[in-house]
Design a protein around this nucleic acid. Sequence first.
DNA 1: GCCACCGGTGGC
DNA 2: GCCACCGGTGGC
Length: 331
Amino acid sequence: MQSRSPKITIKMGGKRPDMTPPAVKSIDETPEKDQSAPHQGPSALSNNDRKETDENALDGSSSEYSSDDEDKNKQMVVYDHSLNGSGVIKAVKNPKSNKPRSASKKPPEVGAFTVQCANCLKWRLIPDQEKYEVIREHITDQPFLCETTRQWNRVVSCDDPTDIEQDGTRIWAIDKPDIARPPPGWKRILRLRNEGSSKFADVYYTSPTGAKLRSLPDVFRYFESHPEHSQGLGPGQFSFQIPRPLEKSYVKKRPAQMAAPKTPETLEPSPVEPLAWAGPAENLNLQLAEPLSWAGPVEDKDGMPAYLKTPEFDFENQAAKKAKRDEVNHL
DNA sequence: GCCACCGGTGGC
DNA sequence: GCCACCGGTGGC
């Protein structure tokens, strides 16, 4: 299909931006999901990516996430923004990267990190994951600004053009704000899944001893078996929250639940009646076919660019969660 | 056998 | 619907 070129813009939620933590959101640009062609045309895009990277002074300090790979056709970008829109992005490699050595499709990888300036709303690439994590950790209390890039000796102002545009070559996703940066010796790994999976991504932590932990209970169990590595650590330092793809169709919808057999008000046992399920099952199929209807352009009433809707962000809940985390961390 | 990746489910 | 958690498994 023709590739759309959504512009990313942040649309303020209807809510008043008092004390509001940063909203996180993302864009996902996967123009088509051609089921048969794992890789295509977009090889040119990798040039774009590289050019962009160069232009944006990611040069020297750019990390292992920079564009070494030739098959970076698409990227996923994650960002969040606060009241006036400060956001964080991540970019990801093409989900359909065609590494010759494996027939199995490798999931996309994070390819870059970007944050949106709270003032000018332009995107600024972040040189490496560590810096990104620091920014994300405090994005609510310390909105990101163009001047923040001076931390890594980059001089850029709100007058300068954006580092990165939504040009249809990337997949955008929404990251969560205020995720604690991993404790020293620990790493927080975000693994994206392939398009069509039941989930968008998985988060896991690697411990100082190399253990891979997939959940908080995992972390607790690790603490028990490795008390020497649990000193001063609490659950607040770990977050298994995953970003969300802007394009919801990236993730396969869970089939609608079979209508639970109505429990009659009476306590009379009701006979099992399998045939009665036929109806719901058909509906289920219809729903699965539905996602294609996303393809059409989406006009936004507020004059915002099409294709981009600011996902709703639960400010209050985020604030509550953060408070809870802080509280936990004090224990 | 290991592990990266994916699916499913229960709880909210 | 979202999320946390964990089981299953195919590919190595």
